[in-house]
Design a protein around this nucleic acid. Structure first.
Length: 339
RNA sequence: GGGGGUAUAAGCUCAAUGGCAAACUGUGGGUCUCCAAAACCCAACUUCUAGGUUCGAAUCCUAGUACCCCCG
């Protein structure tokens, strides 16, 4: 039997698609069929308390039955006692990772996600299950699967506070002085990026060149696409469903825990819902905005994935099953490149 | 019936001493080394209608149309 390099790598199924395309449900179906676990790649479902506005699946937290996790027995008794009631997030019987992993108050970054997701993949691999990375945040997915190396510089709130007061020109000047190379390649009118680059340069002297690690995974990219009209309808329905499901109540609960500024940073649904709960806009406008802004977002997502030629776009669940089946079979036999 | 006012992009708010018709929202396309549902970039579409004055009109003049206000 031919052993290919692909076989030595961890298999990783990646499922992408615009919001409201139904990729979460597809991922669950695939997980059930092929014995997998899901890693959510969603920059906001990572937070506890953001459920309705993020379209989080209605899973439940359950204590892991004793003995399920092999490593638990290996641990020292004391530690076992402390950690014995490890909780897992289950939806339709499928374990989900990277959901409810951080408090809203904290800012969870791509770098954090990369760490968490990689740990989850190892964990799933240890249980000999198929890891399925599924979500709408393209940047987060790429950071994990394409091995994007992020400079090891944590956000510096003190420096940022100082920098946000500066104009875009001043920021560009500052960056040009410390790192003229990066100043040329950067999105020069984008204050966010300028601040981040200055922050990195302040810590490391200059911004390291963008680099990619070697591929560690044997990837299968699946993209769930919908005809534009159908997606629009799904998005409109989703907007109304969100309000009906209690988006406003969710905002009120959040308001007790964090300030308005933080809520606004949690995405357009939360910005709009906040304005509604403050009486600044009516219900009709709220729903209208949710629909419109979701459509715009879906477009940005599509733009992100457009250039990724590895994605196999499918429309029906059955097509996805076929492709996954063939991929797994090929791995077993050792066909180097089934596609 | 008489008097006064307003009219600028698909929409809304609305800018332009008689001198290249802007901004906002939306729409379409795009960017991406740590808040990425974020932030940013590019593009297309406009002066109510018809005349007149002028080298040149969104702007000044005349008439019309629509809407608003006041007096009958």
């Amino acid at each position: 039997m031919v052993t290919t390099s692909e076989q030595n790598k961890t298999p990783l199924l990646v499922i992408v698609g615009p919001t409201a395309s139904g990729k979460s449900e597809l991922a669950v179906k695939i997980a059930r069929k092929f014995d997998g676990e899901i890693i959510s790649a969603d920059s906001r479902q990572i937070y506890r308390g953001l459920d309705i506005g993020t379209g989080k699946v209605k899973g439940v937290w359950k204590s892991e039955p004793p003995g399920t996790s092999g490593e638990v027995r290996e641990r020292h008794i004391k530690e076992v006692t402390k950690k014995r009631r490890e909780k897992i997030f289950l939806y339709k019987g499928i374990r989900h990772h990277c959901i409810d992993s951080a408090p809203v108050r904290r800012v969870f970054t791509v770098a954090d996600f990369k760490t968490y997701a990689e740990r989850a993949i190892l964990d799933i691999e240890g249980r000999e299950k198929l890891p399925i990375l599924c979500g709408g945040t393209g940047f987060w997915i790429d950071a994990v699967v394409s091995g994007l190396t992020l400079p090891n510089v944590a956000p510096n709130p003190v420096l940022r506070k100082e920098l946000v007061r500066k104009t875009q020109e001043e920021l560009l000047d500052m960056l040009a002085r410390v790192d003229p190379v990066r100043a040329l390649t950067i999105d020069q009118k984008n204050p966010h990026r300028l601040i981040r680059a200055i922050e990195i340069a302040a810590a490391l002297g200059k911004v390291p060149p963008s680099s990619r690690e070697k591929f560690r995974y044997d990837l299968l990219w699946l993209g769930l696409s919908r005809p534009p009209v159908e997606l629009t309808v799904r998005i409109e329905n989703r907007a109304m469903a969100m309000v009906r499901a209690g988006l406003i109540e969710e905002i009120r609960t959040l308001r007790k825990r964090v300030g308005k500024k933080r809520i606004r940073a949690l995405g357009f649904e939360y910005r709009a819902a906040l304005e509604y709960s403050e009486g600044e806009i009516g219900k009709e406008e709220l729903i209208g905005r949710l629909g419109r802004e979701t459509r715009q977002y879906a477009k940005r997502q599509t733009t992100w994935w457009k250039k990724n030629m590895d994605i196999r776009w499918i429309r029906r669940d059955d097509d996805a099953f076929e492709i996954v089946k063939a991929w797994l079979a090929a791995r077993k036999v050792g066909i180097p490149d089934a596609w």
